Simulated scan of single mutants.
Amino acid sequence: MKKVKLKKWDVVEHLKTEEDMVLYLEACLEDGDPALITAALGDIARARGMSQVAREAGLSRESLYKALSGEGNPEFATVMKVVKALGLRLRAEQVST
């Protein structure tokens, strides 16, 4: 039997364009899970370069990794700093019922 090599899947490898990043974040926002949204911001920050995003957000790279990890629970102000540093904007829209 032939051995199969498995590689851990990392979404960052698929976030090549600005459009990819926006669509990914939009899908996570639709889900509504705060942990998923912060993890997605972390993925996008890793795709862009965590050091640069941390610098633009006015945070240390270590604190940014911690805040956007699966175990992190960042303050909303931190999330907004990251969103701004990523050059993104969060929008509200009315949900039709």
Rank of each mutant, 00 (worst) to 15 (best):
K3Q: 14
L64Q: 05
N73R: 12
K84W: 01
V22R: 15
Y24R: 08
R91P: 00
R89D: 08
M21K: 15
E13T: 08
E30A: 13
E56F: 07
L64Y: 04
K8A: 14
F76T: 09
H14D: 12
M80C: 03
V79F: 01
Q94I: 13
V95N: 04
R55H: 08
L25Y: 05
S69T: 04
H14V: 02
E75A: 13
R89S: 11
V53P: 04
E13P: 02
Q94M: 09
V11D: 06
V53L: 05
E71D: 13
G32A: 03
G58I: 08
L41W: 06
T38S: 09
V4N: 10
W9I: 13
Y65W: 11
E62V: 12
K2G: 14
I37S: 02
L23G: 12
A67V: 00
Q94A: 12
A39N: 11
K5H: 12
R89T: 10
I44V: 14
K8E: 15
L36A: 13
Q94C: 00
E18G: 04
K3S: 13
D31L: 12
E75N: 08
V4R: 12
G72I: 02
A57D: 04
K2N: 14
R55C: 00
V4D: 10
P34Y: 04
W9N: 11
M50S: 09
P34F: 10
E62P: 02
L41Y: 07
E13L: 10
V79E: 01
K7T: 15
A27Y: 01
V95G: 02
K66W: 08
E62T: 14
T17A: 07
A35Q: 13
Y24A: 07
R91H: 06
R46T: 02
H14Q: 09
V22S: 07
L25I: 12
V4S: 10
K66Q: 13
Y65V: 11
